[in-house]
Amino acid sequence: MELRHLRYFIAVAEMRSVRAASEHLHVTQPAISRQIQDLEDAIGATLFERTPRGLKLTAAGSAYLGEARDILARVDAANRLAHRIASGVHGRLRVGFVENASWSGLVLSALNAFQQAAGDVALELQPMNTPEQLDAIAAERLDGGFCYRFGAWPDGFASLPLLEQGVVLAVPEHSALGKHGPVSARDLSGTPFIAFPRHVYAAYYDRLISACAERGLTLDIRQEASTETAILSLVAAGVGAALVNAANRERPPARVRFVDVHDLDVRLPLEFCFIDRHGNAALQRFIDLLKAHSQPPA
Results as ranks from 00 to 15, higher is better:
Lys56Gln: 14
Leu57Thr: 09
Leu57Glu: 06
Ala59Arg: 06
Ala59Phe: 05
Ala60Phe: 04
Ser62Trp: 11
Tyr64Thr: 09
Tyr64Pro: 12
Leu65Ser: 01
Leu65Ala: 06
Gly66Met: 05
Gly66Val: 05
Asp70Trp: 12
Asp70Glu: 13
Asp70Ser: 13
Asp70Phe: 14
Ile71Asn: 14
Ile71Cys: 08
Ile71Gln: 09
Ala73Asp: 08
Arg74Pro: 01
Arg74Asn: 11
Val75Asp: 04
Val75Tyr: 08
Asp76Asn: 03
Ala77Ser: 15
Ala78Gly: 06
Ala78Asp: 03
Asn79His: 15
Asn79Leu: 14
Arg80Trp: 07
Arg80Glu: 08
Leu81Pro: 00
Arg84Phe: 04
Arg84His: 07
Arg84Asp: 06
Gly88Phe: 10
Gly88Lys: 05
Val89His: 05
His90Arg: 15
Gly91Tyr: 03
Arg92Phe: 02
Arg92Ala: 14
Leu93Ala: 08
Arg94Ile: 10
Arg94Ala: 09
Val95Gly: 05
Val95Glu: 09
Glu99Met: 10
Glu99Leu: 05
Ala101Lys: 02
Ala101Asn: 01
Ala101Trp: 08
Ser102Asp: 05
Ser102Pro: 03
Ser104Asn: 15
Gly105Cys: 00
Leu106Met: 01
Val107Leu: 06
Leu108Tyr: 06
Ser109Gln: 12
Ser109Ile: 14
Asn112Asp: 14
Phe114Cys: 11
Phe114Trp: 00
Phe114Val: 01
Gln115Met: 04
Ala118Met: 11
Asp120Cys: 07
Asp120Glu: 07
Val121Pro: 04
Val121Asp: 03
Ala122Asn: 10
Ala122Gly: 01
Leu123Ala: 05
Glu124Met: 09
Leu125Val: 01
Leu125Gly: 06
Met128Asn: 15
Asn129Tyr: 00
Thr130Glu: 05
Pro131Tyr: 02
Glu132Arg: 12
Leu134Val: 08
Leu134Tyr: 13
Leu134Ala: 03
Asp135Val: 15
Ala136Tyr: 07
Ala136Arg: 11
Ala136Asn: 11
Ile137Val: 13
Glu140Arg: 10
Glu140Trp: 04
Asp143His: 09
Asp143Ile: 04
Gly144Ala: 03
Gly144Gln: 06
Gly145Ser: 08
Gly145Tyr: 10
Gly145Lys: 04
Phe146Ser: 00
Phe146Lys: 01
Arg149Thr: 12
Trp153Arg: 11
Trp153Ile: 09
Pro154Cys: 07
Asp155Gln: 14
Asp155Thr: 15
Gly156Ala: 03
Phe157Ser: 02
Ala158Tyr: 02
Ala158Thr: 02
Ala158Pro: 02
Leu160Glu: 08
Pro161Ser: 00
Leu162Tyr: 06
Leu163Glu: 09
Leu163Asp: 13
Glu164Asp: 12
Glu164Ile: 12
Gln165Gly: 09
Gln165Arg: 13
Gly166Val: 05
Val168Trp: 03
Leu169Thr: 05
Leu169Phe: 03
Ala170Trp: 04
Val171Tyr: 02
Glu173Asp: 13
Ser175Glu: 06
Ala176Gly: 09
Leu177Glu: 00
Lys179Gln: 09
His180Cys: 10
Pro182Glu: 07
Pro182Thr: 08
Val183Cys: 04
Ser184His: 14
Ala185Gly: 09
Ala185Tyr: 10
Arg186Cys: 08
Arg186Leu: 15
Arg186Gln: 03
Asp187His: 01
Leu188Ser: 03
Ser189Leu: 10
Gly190Lys: 12
Thr191Trp: 12
Thr191Asn: 09
Pro192Met: 01
Pro192Ser: 00
Phe193Val: 08
Ala195Gln: 04
Arg198Lys: 13
His199Glu: 10
Val200Ile: 07
Val200Phe: 10
Tyr201Ile: 01
